[in-house]
Each structure stands twice: as structure tokens, then as C-alpha cells.
Design a protein around this nucleic acid. Structure first.
Length: 368
DNA sequence: ACGCTGTTTCCTGTTT
DNA sequence: AAAACAGGAAACAGCG
């Protein structure tokens, strides 16, 4: 017997179009008392030259304008573009008053093809110091390029979702991933988790060679494939123990930009129905407790994102355990492969953990 | 350049 | 016995 999860009614999403533009004037109660020193006026009548035109009422809406966080830039609507620019400006220490948000009511598709000079033009405002505008524009453009690059890198992870091995899990968890397939159509998966060729590729990857290149090149010290020292009579009697720690010389050839942290990565998997509950799932969502269904696959996914074919669950879990120190993750004793987000962990709230379909959805499917 | 943070890659020992 | 867990040690890498 299935327990169907009935998601609570969703509040109507607030739109940035509903945001009001404020200009200084008599006290007017709008959204709480935050803005009682400003008088509301409609966008149509707003004076775009007024410095307060730039001030948008984000504080009440921010939780509903986070859509950009879980979307690619290409898919942002104008509200999400503005919300991202707001976030970008604030996190880099600029004042919301210095950003002419009204100039950025454009889709992510339009934003992503903007050149640096175009962003600078849009950032200009008669009441803002041109130098400040220029700096904000540079910051926004740079952050945008970073995000676009990051998205490109993560395409490889997205491709993973299309690979066949999880079809069986989709069926048993009543998932409908058609839309994922539609969305990612055109990608060809180059990753096959249980593919022998992958394993051999990983085994022969030059990371391992890098690791021991320096030691191996030293005439006084050489290691066998198992890490034991060889070539000396004394050493045959006394087996060599590899010293603790990462071996010297594991220099990477290409730069690997820092991506999301391990806890964020886990949260992202848990909030993505391409991975949850097939390889990782919520054990107790209210407590932030989750279980690895396929730990090795999660580790491989992490490794794929970090361009590291040698990633294992053992190493991945070591990285996880470092997050115990700051309570980002907490251990769950007795239960194996079960971990928990701690008080300092990422926001993991979702209305539908494990993506169990509601009864009405299933019924409508059976009729069609 | 440097220190900090977050890994990664080893290890030993313990628990399940 | 094997897998998972815990955590020390040291190196690496990005970033401010």
C-alpha cells in the first residue's frame, strides 16, 4: 500500500512586477513597517530619475524570488534576472540604491548574451556615481560569466541524469522523468556508471600517475602498484608503509574551479528528482536526515563534477565528515549510510521530499 | 605572497 | 569478513 504524499497548497508566487517603486514621501503602510518612510507609486508613474526608483521591495519577497538559484540563466524570466542582480550587488557590498533594476527587466536569455559594455550602459543612472556604476557592472558581468561557465561544466552532470541505469528506480518510485528527457534531449550520455571501460579508464587515469611520479622518479625510493616499496633487500624483509597523508606531486594539469561544497551538492541531489530517490533519498526530511541508496554512484557523480575519475565513497565521506566540525552535517550513529544536515547546513526544505507523486496526478495519468 | 577553507588521498583502528 | 565509520596527517587548490 502506497502512502501518497499530498503537498500543501502552494502560495501564489509573488512577481517582481508586483514590486512597488518607492519615492520619499509621507508614511504609507505597505508590506509591514519596513517601508513606512516611503510612498508607493505605480511603476508607470515612477520617476526613473529619482534615486528611490532603484529601491525595490525585496525583503518581503526574497524567498519567492529565488527561482534563479535552481535554474540556468537561459531560463530566467525578467523577475529572476532582477532578483539575481540584486543578490549579486548586495553580496558584493553594493547598495541596492545604486542599481537601476528597471533596466534589467530582461529575460536570462537576453542577459546572457549581453556584452560587458552593454551591462555598463544598463547600469548607468543619473543619480549614481558613474565610477560606482562601472564597478557594479564589472562585478555583475564577471559573476554572470562565472555562472555561465559553471553551468557549462555542470552540463556533464546533467547528462548523467539521462543515462539508462536508473530507469528501474524511476518505475519503482513512481517518477515521471519525461520532462527531463525532453529538456535534455540532444545530449548524449557519455557516462555509464557500471561500464567496465569507465573503470579501466579510471584505473589508468593519470591522477594516479601524478601521485607517484615524483616518488617513482627518485632512484632511492620507488613504489609498487600497491604502494609498497620495492627494489631493496631490506625492504623485502620489512614491508614499507606509505606515510599518512596525500602524496606529494599530485599536481593537476588543468585548473579545477571550486564548485559547490559537499553539503550543497548533497542538498542539490536530494532536491532533484533525477537523483532522489534513485541514488540518494530522504530518510526523515523534517530532520534533514537522508540516506545514500547508491553511495558509489553519488561519489562518482561528485567526482565527475570535480573532473576526478578516482573519487570513491570513502574519500567523499571523509570530506563529509569534515563538515561535522561546524555542524553543517551531523552523524547519525547506528544507522549506516544515513547522514543528517546540521543546524549550519544548507536550506533543504521542499514540499515534496523524494518526489512521490500525489494521488490525483496518478489518477489523471491512468485516465489519459 | 600568504593564510584560510574545503577538499583529496592516504592511513589506522573501530564498529556493525 | 567486508563494508562503513571515525578521524589524524599531509598535500593540494581556489580565493580573498
Amino acid at each position: 500500500m502506497c502512502d501518497f504524499y499530498l503537498s500543501p497548497p502552494q502560495p501564489a508566487p509573488a512577481r517582481l512586477d508586483d514590486f512597488n517603486v518607492f519615492k520619499k514621501g509621507n508614511a504609507t503602510f505597505t508590506y509591514g513597517n519596513l517601508y513606512n518612510s516611503y510612498e508607493m507609486c505605480s511603476e508607470a508613474e515612477a520617476d526613473t530619475n529619482n534615486v528611490y526608483y532603484n529601491l525595490l521591495n525585496f525583503r518581503e519577497y526574497r524567498q519567492d524570488t529565488d527561482g534563479w538559484k535552481n535554474k540556468v540563466v537561459q531560463d530566467w524570466n525578467s523577475d529572476e534576472t532582477v532578483a539575481w542582480i540584486y543578490d549579486c550587488a548586495i553580496t558584493h557590498g553594493y547598495s541596492e540604491l545604486d542599481v537601476p533594476f528597471h533596466n534589467f527587466r530582461i529575460s536570462g536569455h537576453e542577459l546572457r548574451i549581453k556584452r560587458r559594455e552593454e551591462i555598463m550602459d544598463l547600469m548607468v543612472h543619473p543619480h549614481v556615481d558613474p565610477e560606482v556604476s562601472r564597478r557594479i557592472a564589472h562585478t555583475v558581468f564577471d559573476r554572470l560569466q562565472c555562472r555561465l561557465n559553471e553551468e557549462m561544466r555542470q552540463q556533464s552532470v546533467l547528462r548523467y541524469a539521462d543515462s539508462a541505469p536508473y530507469t528501474q528506480y524511476h518505475e519503482q518510485t513512481i517518477l515521471d522523468l519525461d520532462y527531463c528527457n525532453d529538456r535534455n534531449r540532444g545530449y548524449t550520455s557519455d557516462y555509464k556508471p557500471n561500464d567496465i571501460s569507465l573503470m579501466s579508464a579510471a584505473d589508468s587515469s593519470d591522477d594516479h600517475e601524478d601521485t607517484f611520479r615524483m616518488e617513482a622518479s627518485s632512484p632511492a625510493c620507488s613504489y609498487g602498484s600497491d604502494g609498497s616499496k620495492s627494489g631493496d633487500e631490506d625492504d623485502k624483509k620489512k614491508p614499507f608503509k606509505r606515510p599518512p597523508g596525500r602524496p606529494k606531486g599530485s599536481i593537476k594539469k588543468d585548473k579545477r574551479p571550486r564548485s559547490v561544497s559537499v553539503p550543497q551538492f548533497l542538498r542539490d541531489l536530494l532536491l532533484d528528482e533525477r537523483f532522489c530517490p534513485s541514488i540518494i533519498k530522504w530518510e526523515d526530511h523534517s530532520l534533514g536526515k537522508f540516506r545514500f541508496v547508491k553511495p558509489d554512484e553519488v561519489a562518482k557523480l561528485w567526482g565527475q563534477m570535480k573532473q576526478n575519475d578516482n573519487m570513491t565513497f570513502e574519500k567523499f565521506s571523509r570530506a563529509m565528515r569534515y563538515h561535522y566540525q561546524h555542524m553543517v552535517l551531523v552523524s547519525v550513529p547506528t544507522a549506516r549510510l544515513v547522514y543528517q544536515f546540521g543546524p549550519k547546513g544548507p536550506d533543504f526544505k521542499t514540499n515534496n521530499p523524494n518526489f512521490v507523486k500525489v494521488k490525483s496526478e496518478l489518477e489523471s495519468q491512468s485516465y489519459s
